[in-house]
Design a protein around this nucleic acid. Sequence first.
DNA 1: AATACAACCGGACCGCGGTCCGTTTAGCAT
DNA 2: ATGCTAAACGGACCGCGGTCCGGTTGTATT
Lengths: 210, 210
Amino acid sequence: MSLIPIRPGAQSGGGRAPGPAAESERRDAARNRELLLCAAREIVEESGADALTMDRLAQRAGVGKGTVFRRFGSRAGLMMALLSGAEAEFQGRFMFGPPPVGPGAPPLERLIAVGAARISWILEFGELARAADASVYNRFDVPPAVLWHRHLEMLLREAGVTADPWLMASALGAALEPELLLHAVGVHGIAPERLAETWRELVTRVVGGG
Amino acid sequence: MSLIPIRPGAQSGGGRAPGPAAESERRDAARNRELLLCAAREIVEESGADALTMDRLAQRAGVGKGTVFRRFGSRAGLMMALLSGAEAEFQGRFMFGPPPVGPGAPPLERLIAVGAARISWILEFGELARAADASVYNRFDVPPAVLWHRHLEMLLREAGVTADPWLMASALGAALEPELLLHAVGVHGIAPERLAETWRELVTRVVGGG
DNA sequence: AATACAACCGGACCGCGGTCCGTTTAGCAT
DNA sequence: ATGCTAAACGGACCGCGGTCCGGTTGTATT
């Protein structure tokens, strides 16, 4: 594995950024990326994320398997690419959108609102999100996850929580993980509103208690 | 998958209970179970849980691969079998042990203490525990997980938390998951005492806030 | 237009977890 | 001891995610 990027936009680790095409990508490569993303969306829509196999995807898109891995690095990377639009939109909402999710509302209100928004987001895209969380790295150290964590941290600080903000954000963030929420709703039949309600309760107590 | 147990002690899903041998197990089967558990412990001790491959284990124990799966059902089942001793000991501590982890102390103190105990437990056995959490079922619906969850639920109720106890226990329990704790300690270098401290802070606020 | 080189491509290949099924064997009844 | 049956056994087999490498193709340069 080369430590020095071969050319601008390339990424170490054998894969490539899951986001939009890096600048200066060869035309056939760009074409195949679109082909693959399109075919992937079709498969997910038809049969769910679990049915999205790298071999199947390659066959469906009419390319070789190596090409799939060259473009997306791994199955998790592909899933992140599929999610990147929805993820960016969500980030935009809590960073620049209207209150109470976006800036402008008091921190506790923002925490409550952003949690509720996150819950509905996960109930919509959770299947993909879970598939994207294949490794520990993908779960915690990928840019969107870091951004989300930092945002929680900031809101907690603004709300006056003095205890270790990093760990506090981790603990609260763990309550919003896709695996947990999907399990609560899918297996135990918890209503989505209960999730948001309990989140409100939780975060209110944490912030209010001192 | 048959819904009716073939014989007492057998378990649906193609595997067998991860605990001690079911009554009336054929002698060669029992012998192989011990052989396998022993070989598995050796491999884990030598090279870590990630190096524990089903093929390798079978080869090392001198049995066929089919036998491994017959005995333990899956890799996760094997990991649970390896953990069952430590897990039972931990259960004993919070159910029947001396306070403040066991009964006899006020609920908030018990919550704090049992969380701290859980944290050290995970820092000791977390690698195996993480490997045992392969599927959603293994994470949430396996008997020890259910027992643990119920215990948290009970303590919260006793401490006067009125909000949905099941979800509250899920949220707080998520802050103690192996993947999260191991990541915090291993990647971010958080000191174990900080984990316990933050847990104390978290649970105190949740209980105290109303 | 010809050349050269880097990026790209495809598919054979690997090790993994898990399944299947023909064969062997333990335990019991006679 | 002998024979019967259900359980246990072993290893070939499968589909999966991921890697590798020899051949191909796009693109910049002259």
